[in-house]
Amino acid sequence: MTATAPVVAAAAPKMDPLHHFHVTKYLDFDYLGIDVAISNSVLWMWIAAGLVLLFFHLAFKNPRIVPGRLQSLGEAGYLFIRGIVDDIVGEKGRPFFPYIFTLFFFILFCNLAGLIPGSFTVTSQLIVTATFSLMIVGFSFVYGFYMHGTHYFKFFVPSGVPVLLMPLMIPIEIISFLARPVSLAVRLFANMTAGHTMLAVMFLYVVTLPWWGAWLPFGFTVIFTGVEIFIGFIQAYIFTILTCVYINDSIHMH
């Protein structure tokens, strides 16, 4: 036992369960002082986007009135997002449908592509999820002003609350509004990071335990990969739902 310990310890730096969250720049580019490097993160964004396009291309390559399996799946995806937008935002949400559709499938395919061994999970990068959530909340804020003008400030004044409580309620409303992008970004990032870290830790157990003990964490990784697929869907769904809720708030106030 003691003889193998240094060997394992020497391999340990490679056994970092957070290792697969490392962003590695393949090509370093600068454009007008902005860093536009191509990294594994960027590469997998493109792969995910490419998979979205490939999926829909295959599904609707030869569209039929009576759909085949893949076309049914594609239509189900379309109608799923359509249903979310119609249910939450309603008629006025139609112009945003392509954005929400793109957002859902981009995030979903990033989540699922991250489960391929050796791949990179784009949505486990807080900066990526934060970019999206800030775009969404920022857009809903700007759109709210565009729709309602200064009237939009009433958004931060809860109705039916005694005036005496206003000095307390208005800051709470503002904080809860500011918490939106944070919670949106952190939820997706944390779910992806936690799941993949858990899988990584279990795989480390598999390679460090002797064969008679390795089957237990290995079995767990098998089950947990299934759970991760489910989580990938759920998180993309939640992200989309909340986006619709925020857009609805800026259209209809509350």
Binding site: V23, K25, F29, I34, D35, V36, A37, I38, S39, S41, V42, M45, W46, A49, T102, L103, F106, V122, Q125, I127, V128, T131, F132, M135
Partner: peptide
Amino acid sequence: SVFQHQIVWSIASF
């Protein structure tokens, strides 16, 4: 150090 290019490419890719 890996933030900026990911922000740019996230928006662009989207």
